[in-house]
Design a protein around this nucleic acid. Structure first.
Lengths: 337, 337
DNA sequence: GGCATTGCCGAAAACGTTTTCGGCGTTCAT
DNA sequence: ATGAACGCCGAAAACGTTTTCGGCAATGCC
């Protein structure tokens, strides 16, 4: 900076002023400084600036090590939103989804003096861990676990599950089976309860939910249990991946989709449109989720202390109907086969 | 830090010494300092440290906005490796895959004074852009585009494509068709040339490659063109996604897989095992790629100036055979249907 | 017992910005 | 003509570390 000042024939504070766009600097000196900056390819020192302004201009994102569609999309949109707000983003991914890992990640990010953290933290225990440190650093969670103590933005999973279940009931299915996600994931629990709600509201029988993990493999395993019951004609899966596995199990058992049984997934990943058959699914707008979470975080870190202690945003998901669901074939037809 | 020093009854430089694990500090004073640190929840100031050491301890990674399996896995493993080497990682994702965007991202990261950059930069133009700035900041590219001027680590796409093609030829198929990726992606070009090589080596006819983009949608479109030709019995797709689309097109045209036509993909995403039918694919170890790229970057930023100006690591991919490929059915059999 | 060596620690000078303060000229109202 | 107000700019003090230097005791060696 001193070099720039020297070259432009001004003092270093004047350079600082033009860099930061302060007013009260004559136009020709500004031009001279700018020219010198370009000539020397000057970049202001990040550390020195952070030191004196006491702001790092950096936000942290906690993700987890699994190349899933949702988290990844959110990470990207968070980063995009952060950059256009002038913030850097630093990531810390956790390998295990537990309290300890979250605390470690928070600690790691704090060492870098991030000004706030958005956590893609799917399990309840993770959100709670975040609550423990939320007095030391601003946090929000996005698209997964949530707790009273930390603001979150996510989709309305209950509503989404209702949408899916209602869709199947409307197609004439007497009831809907559910391959759920792991129960300690709030998303999974909410989806299961939305499904249950919808069945009860329609006075349909409520079969036991088949507990799965999220993966296609697990869907396949649970699907093989489902096919033993010839009465199932409609299955709502807690994720697209699960649905993929279920689809395969059904197929191997000779069930036609959607002829014999209808399947709907959850997430609305774009590839869902190209599996066989294209999957009806509840789509969540991950990009919007990311954007919103960053907005929420900034509103808290922005110094607006008057902001409410804890806020929570719910986005409504949308059902995209594709070929994996169809009206129930009449029983008489099926038995003539 | 002064508070800690005061509480422990020592000077601040002694605190600095124990924090940084320097020798020559008495054991009981070390304990006192450590206790004080804990009592005050002291965290050393990142900016001040960076300022004086002239090292940010931060690495940048350039990714792109697409929730693909490969890039995401690499990002995770890069972060993990960086963290265990004591580096923070800051991300900048580019929306468009061109020179300009890369330069912008580099500039953005440089503003944060990253010590090095690993770029997940699939197109050739991006790698070249990186070459332009590689005198100002250490760069490596990983898993995609590459250029002479910047070190890279990637899999041997040519070998992978040969593997896939050979596999199909060995199954008795007279030739193998290819749905390629976009030609300005070096990965796609390499896979196409590996495929061509293998065909020539086997003296098999070389059909025209069908140019696609990477997506399932594009695979579907190209698949619909392929099905017009009844003579195709084996298709090598440049990605799993493409294969998904091709699978669907074949299925809709009434072709049985692998009975009538065998299909192999590229990438080896875990879900490939659960589509219908489970996809034979060339698997690349993205985790290893990420790890290696970070290692390479560190060897260059580590100050070992004696390191060669440009290095390039090639990992060998591996074929995982699943149910989407089978020996060619004899023509006589097929015509009796 | 003197002298060099070594272990432990504190004083002070960086590191490269931003910010506060004040000085100098010019303009404007009185 | 005079004082206030204002626009422009430089001097200097932070910001919180690390690092270099040096001081003081204790120890080892002759």
């Amino acid at each position: 900076m001193r070099d720039v000042a020297e070259l432009a024939g001004v003092s270093s504070q004047t350079v600082s002023r033009v860099i930061n766009g302060h007013p009260h600097v004559a136009d020709d000196t500004r031009q001279r400084v700018l020219a010198a900056v370009r000539a020397l390819d000057y970049q202001r020192n990040f550390a020195a600036r952070a030191l004196v302004t006491r702001r790092s201009g950096t936000l942290g994102v906690i993700g987890y090590e699994s190349p899933l569609y949702g988290p990844t999309s959110m990470l990207c949109s968070i980063e995009g939103a952060a950059r256009s707000a002038g913030y850097f983003v630093s990531v810390a991914s956790v390998r295990h989804l537990d309290r300890r890992s979250v605390l470690d990640a928070v600690d790691w990010l704090r060492r870098q003096s991030v000004e706030g953290i958005v956590a893609i933290a799917p399990k309840a225990s993770m959100a709670e861990a975040l609550g423990e440190v939320s007095d030391r650093v601003a946090c929000v969670t996005v698209g997964g676990g949530y707790s009273e103590t930390v603001p979150s933005v996510r989709i309305d999973n209950v509503a989404g599950a209702r949408l899916a279940t209602r869709h199947l009931l409307d197609l004439g299915h007497p009831t809907v089976h559910h391959v759920s996600g792991p129960p300690d994931w709030p998303e999974a629990a909410d989806r299961a309860s939305g499904w249950r709600d919808a069945l009860r509201a329609a006075a349909a029988p409520v079969p036991a939910a088949v507990p799965g993990y999220w993966s296609a493999r697990s869907g396949y395993e649970q699907g093989r249990r489902l096919v033993r019951d010839p009465s199932v004609t409609a299955v709502f899966c807690a994720s697209d991946q699960l649905a993929l596995g279920v689809l395969r199990a059904l197929h191997e058992a000779g069930r036609r989709i959607p002829g014999d049984v209808s399947v709907v997934g959850f997430d609305g990943a774009p590839d869902g449109g190209y599996v066989l058959p294209p999957l009806t699914s509840v789509r969540q707008d991950f990009t919007e989720l990311g954007r919103r979470s960053l907005e929420l975080l900034l509103s808290r870190v922005g110094g607006a202390e008057g902001a409410p202690a804890s806020r929570c945003e719910l986005l409504v998901p949308e059902l995209v109907v594709r070929q994996s669901t169809a009206p129930l074939r009449r029983v008489s037809l099926r038995s003539t086969r």
